[in-house]
Amino acid sequence: MAVDDRKVGVFMFLPAVAYIALLIGVPLLLAVLYAFSDARIGTMGFHFVGLENFRSILQSPSFRAALRNSVVFTISAQIIVIVASSILSIALEPAFHGRWFVRLLILLPWVAPISLGAIGWKWILDSIYSVITWVLVWAHIFKPYGAPMWLGEPTLAMASVVLVHSWRLIPFSTVIMLAGRTSIPKEIPEAAAIDGAGFWRTEFLINIPMMMPIISVAVLFGTIFTFTDMTVVYILTAGGPFDSTQVLPSLAFATGIQGSDLAAGAAISLFLVPVLILIAYFMLRAAHRAEVA
């Protein structure tokens, strides 16, 4: 019986293993292989070149900018997402008329295809047709033609990319936070109220610490989604102006696919792996802690 169970178990497990091996394992192996070679699109030649690709990308100013931008992009987007989704989860927790509708509205950016959303934002932030600019001019905050170019100036472009990506991630994070908040027994904040704690004390000393395992899951997921994402950057700015919004995934794509230097692209994307492994480790640990608690 035990042996049979084992066989069945292996059999049931196989599709998932095959799926992961084919769609994730093979490309990952290829990337490792390419990163140590001189593979290029359009040639069949293939030589191992050792760490040459890594040496060369480390010297490239584009790569350093992308690395810096990736860090800035990820951290600032996470801070915005966590603060905003905390506030939203507090607002959406108590029952009120039309709560389900508001929750649905807030979830929309997450269910809409990211490319559509990003294209929408591209128009909203467009240098000529921007509705934001139009409103600001109409309100006499800027003179016509004197308004900032949202995607055309390095700092503003980075801010725009961060905000659009946050807009995209907030619903996901809010749902996780709401779940965390709902899982706190009702008596706990009530006990805190009776013990004399006001709103802030209850939030910071009771609710948020109790939600910590869940918040860390949200942060780690968000970090991975942000660190590995290039859609928003690619659609809004394509990494410009002057690489000021270039992040590692978009640079890897630009170098490896568009620039046909597969080897360099693979090396750039492999650069992410150690960071992601570290994050994944913490993520699993946090998830485990959340389970145990």
């Binding site: 027994p185 008596e187 706990i188 009530e190 006990a191 009771i206 610490p209 109790m210 910590m212 608690a293």
Partner: peptide, 11 residues
């Protein structure tokens, strides 16, 4: 107040 579940702060 003492609650039925005691409502101790678990952390």
């Amino acid at each position: 107040m003492v609650f039925q579940s005691y409502a101790l702060y678990p952390h």
